[in-house]
């Protein structure tokens, strides 16, 4: 459990790109004088991932999640610092190291569109030199657990999105890798498929001690699978720690969701000053739903406050959901910077 499998030290990745000037004049100027700019996709990343960890990597679009995965898995080299896996430079991994890793890109299929998944799996079996008996056993077991055992012979293009993603997951685990990178594997999937995939990932992580790095915009994915969370913002690590620690930070606050009757008055900016004495904050305001963050001791005073001002159909009081916690981290850092 203590062995460090992935290590980034001051890792940075910069892309050089040129600015395209607008209009016809800009087109001619671009032909002869390009204005180059450097974009820092990653900067000063310090990261250690140990055997058996299930790490969630989150951040807004363009935060550097996929670039980080690419650098650490050896798809693209870092521009500064170092990225190492299994003790080797990630961009110079040998075949014996590559046999120990796997990658699933949620938006890029590993399997061939026009063929049944089983054909692609046979090619993967040869690529990873998986013994035939192991291959058959693992394939059958994974397909049954993911509920696609009867779909292996069907052309990939005729499968649903959820079934295709399950096939991708099967392909990624066939050679029993030590490290698996999953880049938004549940994107666009229905609730049942998402749950099946999450359950499978958690089971395989616990049973085999596979190190899994998961990126997702779906906080449920993160909350139900990961024990550690890394938050990226503009190419930098904003938070790196346990999910439990993160939640404990805001344990003293509650999320109060208020559902209004259609006849109720909506939120008014004039109410804002009234929240301050209670230490409450409005997190989200939809026409018939309001979400507040309220200190736990103030809940008793806050509830009458909302009942006095709105016609309420329903009200729930819960611990902060993960997406609210993360939004707060972003806001705190922005305020601090």
């Amino acid at each position: 459990m203590n062995e460090v499998l992935i290590e980034m030290r001051g890792a940075g990745k910069r892309f050089r790109t040129w600015k395209r000037r607008e209009g016809l004049g800009g087109f001619f100027v671009n032909l002869f004088a390009r204005e180059w700019t450097e974009v820092a996709a990653l900067e000063g990343i310090e990261l250690e991932i140990r055997r058996g960890e299930f790490l969630g990597l989150i951040g807004a679009n363009g935060a550097g999640k996929t670039t980080l995965l690419k650098c650490v898995s050896g798809i693209t080299p870092v521009s500064s610092g170092s990225a190492r896996m299994f003790g080797c430079d990630s961009f110079a991994l040998r075949d014996e190291h590559k046999r120990r890793l796997s990658m699933v890109m949620g938006q890029r299929s590993q399997l061939w569109w026009d063929l049944p998944a089983i054909d692609s799996f046979r090619l993967l079996r040869e690529i990873y030199s998986v013994p035939r008996s192991d291959f058959e056993l693992r394939l059958r077991e994974a397909a049954e657990r993911l509920g696609v055992a009867d779909k292996l012979q069907r052309q990939l293009r005729n499968l649903s999105l959820g079934e295709r993603m399950k096939m991708e997951i099967i392909g990624a685990f066939l050679h029993e890798p030590d490290v698996v990178f999953l880049d938004e594997p549940t994107i666009g999937l229905d609730l049942v498929s998402r749950e099946t995939i999450r359950r499978y990932l958690v089971e395989i992580n616990r049973a085999r001690g596979v190190t899994i790095v998961l990126t997702s915009h779906d906080m449920e994915d993160i909350e139900e699978t990961c024990r550690r969370l890394v938050i990226l913002r503009q190419g930098r690590v904003l938070f790196d720690g346990g999910l439990v620690d993160l939640k404990a930070r805001t344990y003293e606050r509650r999320a109060i969701e208020v559902h209004l009757e259609p006849s109720s008055p909506g939120w008014d900016a004039a109410f804002e000053p009234l929240l301050e004495p209670l230490g409450a904050r409005l997190e989200r305001a939809a026409p018939l739903t309001l979400l507040f963050s309220v200190p736990a001791p103030a809940v008793q005073r806050f509830v009458p406050f909302v009942f006095e001002r709105f016609a309420i159909r329903d009200l729930s009081i819960e611990h902060h959901p993960l997406d609210m916690i993360i939004r707060q981290i972003f806001q705190q850092r922005e305020g601090g910077s």
């Binding site: 690419k70 050896g74 798809i75 075949d95 890793l101 890109m105 890029r108 990873y128």
Partner: peptide, 13 residues
């Protein structure tokens, strides 16, 4: 162009 070649770069092949 479309990034599909990426998958092969992590394979022992």
């Amino acid at each position: 162009f479309q990034g599909y070649v990426t998958k092969y770069l992590t394979m022992p092949v």
